Simulated assay, not measured.
Amino acid sequence: MTQEESSSQGHKEGALSADWFLVDSDVRAFALAGLRSRIAVLKPDGNVYVKEGGLNANWTWQTSGATAIALAGNRIGALYADGNVLVKEGDLGAPWTWQTSGAKAIALAGDRIGALSTDGNVYVKEGGLNADWTLQRSAATAIALAGNRIGALSADGNVYVKEGGLNADWTWQTSGATAIALSGNRIGALYVDGNVLVKEGDLGAPWTWQTSGARAIALAGNRIGALYVDGNFRVKEGDLSAP
């Protein structure tokens, strides 16, 4: 899960009724990865810090000059102001490996790395950090990765998702969207009017309305998060009909 524009970052661990734990302050963006219990923060000055383990673990500086971050398993990804993408794999002291240039967004999932180029092309690589890139789609404004799924938001507001190998066919999902999110077998879409809909199951599953008045969404496991236009951030846990 990744979220941007937060002046102070609180994180809670356990059920939704668990207490919040202040992890850091003055944060531009953050990312979470459950497998290694990692938390990453991007500071307004472009510095990236990651902690691993308990919520009170120490921060480890990773890099500077970043504009976006991503976590997945034992990988950390950083997008830089000059459009370069670097990824490291292993412990927090592992070296960075250059991936590509001319990017404006990145995504990580398992052994896949996704990059959205400044000209709207979606590229994904699978396997080691030196694997080849595969062009997936053009005229996109956002990308999302989860498991063996790739999601793309087109400039016209249409959402497409593919499942399986990198050469799998795209399946149209919805129109009028401004943001997308993927997690497991769930697909989330935020619409121009602020409504959030989520579907669960195969790519042909029906959409279920979740909330309105949102400006950003995130999915993680069986949780759905929505950041509202009034600045409130709410999370629901459980099935799609949970309150």
Rank of each mutant, 00 (worst) to 15 (best):
S117E: 09
L71W: 03
Y49H: 13
N84R: 15
G127S: 10
L92I: 02
K104C: 11
T97C: 00
V85E: 01
A168M: 09
V85F: 05
G73A: 02
L219N: 03
Y160K: 04
G102N: 12
A216V: 04
Y123Q: 00
V87D: 07
A115N: 09
L116G: 01
V159L: 10
V196K: 06
A146F: 03
A72V: 05
W20T: 09
A81T: 13
L227W: 09
T178R: 07
D24A: 15
A226K: 04
N148H: 13
A214Q: 00
L190Y: 03
A31N: 05
D26E: 14
V198R: 10
L227M: 07
L86V: 15
K104L: 00
V198C: 05
A70E: 02
M1K: 15
A142L: 11
G77F: 06
T2L: 11
Y123F: 13
I143A: 01
S241L: 12
R75P: 05
A78V: 11
W170K: 06
I113E: 08
A152C: 01
G54H: 12
E52V: 06
A78S: 12
A214C: 06
D119N: 13
Y228D: 11
S183E: 06
G77C: 00
T134W: 03
G238V: 04
Y191T: 06
V161I: 15
N74R: 12
L79K: 09
N121E: 12
G213P: 08
F21E: 15
S17W: 13
A168Y: 00
R186A: 00
A68L: 09
